[in-house]
Amino acid sequence: MGNHIVSDRNNKKMPLGDDCHAWKKKTTDVKDQYDFKEILGTGAFSEVVLAEEKRTQKLVAIKCIPKKALEGKENSIENEIAVLHKIKHANIVSLEEIFESKSHLYLIMQLVSGGELFDRIIEKGFYTEKDASKLIQQILDAVKYLHDMGIVHRDLKPENLLYYSMDEDSKIMISDFGLSKIEGSGSVMSTACGTPGYVAPEVLAQKPYSKAVDCWSIGVIAYILLCGYPPFYDENDAKLFEQILKAEYEFDSPYWDDISDSAKDFIVHLMEKDPHVRYTCDQALQHPWIAGDTALDKNIHESVSAQIKKNFAKSKWKQAFNATAVVRHMRRLQLGTSSEGPSPTLPSPCQTHLEDGEACCEGGCSQNVEGGADPLSNCTYRCHPTSRV
């Protein structure tokens, strides 16, 4: 699962009901309804393609998953589809349709074309606590929606936050539900998963946990949005885990000198070691830094953007769906900004020949599907940057 932590594999079926299979839409050729335009990214187990619905000319992102890569992981894909299919929220990337052929699953996803959170902050000339507060409010609202539905995201981090459009006032969108789990009645999750720097202490301690893990992660994201570096960092994983387990973090000078006490108070309530004391989304939404006017208007762009560049180099954080590629592809195709010209002809994606146990990646490499990696840890449509752009 890449940089995700996995302590055990629970093969029991998730409490999702019996209608998962009814959602799959059988089709011999998804291209009867969608015009495949560009490959946006290629992961070890799937390809993401920019496509246009022929009937409406609407642009979408299609995640093409070879069934060969899913052997033995059918429950995981059912869980992902069950989770995604239930979710309808303005700040969460939606799964619009599911197609199935003999060889592939096709997940038709809402296209987000505004690029990545860090890119947008760096590009801004002006950035304030108020901007950060508005971002966190949207994230809290979306995560509260998930929690109210009994869904825990479990892997909230900046890479999973994408802008809906290039508009200056674009909303932010949460993507990536590969680690989501719908809480069954009375069930308590104990599988350790997530990305080390963002996971809550109780996850690392392998204690039972629930929705509170997402609130911790939102606290970590808020911290980064206000200073540009993570609250916990060490090259040594054991030392990193020790910091997180003790909830040892500081508001270091000079980086936090100009940040309001209200912002710090907000973070402290979310990055609270005890999950029972930690703020819920409801409580966080009512905090003055979110609901009131305590977030400052002072420009902190220079300091924050410098730290983001230093601490989140592209190679470190550009692991998710290649949102920048979408922006570049759309500009090149002049989609949505002027009359559409003919799109370049590309090799047809999702038709790679699969040898037994292998999935081919762009660039000619191959990775073993049986190697224990989870192709679904990369949802909603997470894939590696490609050399095409």
Rank of each mutant, 00 (worst) to 15 (best):
K88Q: 10
N368H: 12
D131A: 05
E202C: 01
K13L: 15
D18G: 05
I267K: 10
L270T: 07
N322M: 02
Y198L: 08
E302Q: 14
F118P: 04
L225W: 12
H21F: 10
S76P: 00
A295F: 13
A247R: 00
E302W: 04
Y34S: 05
A320C: 06
P230Q: 12
S187E: 12
V30Y: 07
K54M: 11
H287I: 04
C350W: 09
Q367R: 14
F241Q: 10
D167M: 00
F312Q: 14
L376C: 11
S165G: 07
S217F: 05
E235Y: 01
N378C: 13
V49S: 02
N311Y: 14
C379N: 11
S217K: 03
I182F: 06
F266P: 05
P375G: 09
K130T: 09
C64E: 07
K314S: 03
W256A: 02
K273Q: 09
K86S: 09
L285R: 08
V112R: 06
I5Q: 12
L146T: 11
M1W: 04
K207H: 03
P66D: 13
E183A: 15
K310P: 14
T294V: 07
Y255A: 07
A238L: 15
I267M: 10
N322Q: 11
D8I: 12
S113F: 05
L335Y: 12
D35L: 04
K273D: 04
H353P: 08
D131R: 03
N236T: 11
N91I: 00
K12Y: 13
E116Q: 14
K88A: 07
G2T: 09
L117M: 12
F99V: 09
I92D: 01
L156C: 04
E71P: 02
S165P: 06
Q367E: 15
L335K: 03
I81P: 05
K314V: 00
N322C: 08
K309H: 12
Y163G: 00
S387G: 06
S113H: 08
A313N: 15
E38H: 05
T380W: 10
V48C: 15
A359I: 10
M166W: 00
Q307H: 15
E183S: 12
Q283H: 10
C365A: 12
T128N: 01
V327E: 13
Y255K: 04
N378K: 13
L296G: 03
L84V: 02
L117T: 11
R154A: 05
T28Q: 14
D297Q: 14
R331P: 02
M173N: 01
C350A: 10
V48L: 04
H104A: 02
R278E: 13
S303C: 08
Y279F: 13
K273V: 01
G228T: 01
E358A: 08
S180K: 06
K246M: 05
G292V: 12
K316W: 15
N11A: 13
V143K: 14
K86I: 07
A306L: 07
T128M: 04
Y163L: 00
P385K: 11
H384R: 05
I151V: 06
D297R: 10
N3L: 07
A320P: 08
Y229Q: 13
Y145C: 11
A82R: 06
K26N: 15
I108R: 03
Y209M: 05
I62S: 06
K211Y: 05
M271P: 10
H153V: 06
A263K: 00
G219V: 01
G115Y: 01
R331H: 08
C360E: 09
R120F: 00
E370A: 15
N311T: 13
I218V: 08
N160W: 00
R55V: 07
W317V: 11
R278H: 10
